[in-house]
């Protein structure tokens, strides 16, 4: 299935900003994180369709997954 992945801030370095990627059915957010070799201890916000999700959320065809490192401001 096709999933759009968006990366932000430091996670973009050496990777990409946005990419449509192919994953087998049943792929979880954790699988994508592992596939992209994102450092677990720096993981911040994970969102699908503008809602926060957990690492064990299973992706569906056509969804957009946004992955941020821990960030803040204000």
């Amino acid at each position: 299935m096709k999933v759009t992945v968006k990366l932000f801030a430091t996670f973009r370095a050496g990777r990409f900003n946005i990419e449509v990627r192919d994953y087998p059915a049943g792929t979880t957010v954790a699988d994508v994180v592992k596939d992209l070799e994102l450092p677990g201890e720096k993981l911040g916000i994970l969102m699908i369709n503008h809602r926060h999700v957990d690492l064990d959320r299973v992706l569906s065809e056509g969804e957009t997954l946004a992955i941020f490192p821990l960030v803040g401001g204000g």
Partner: peptide, 10 residues
């Protein structure tokens, strides 16, 4: 301003 993408995404 790192928050622009965060709030937009949310």
């Amino acid at each position: 301003n790192v928050l622009t993408n965060v709030l937009n995404e949310a």
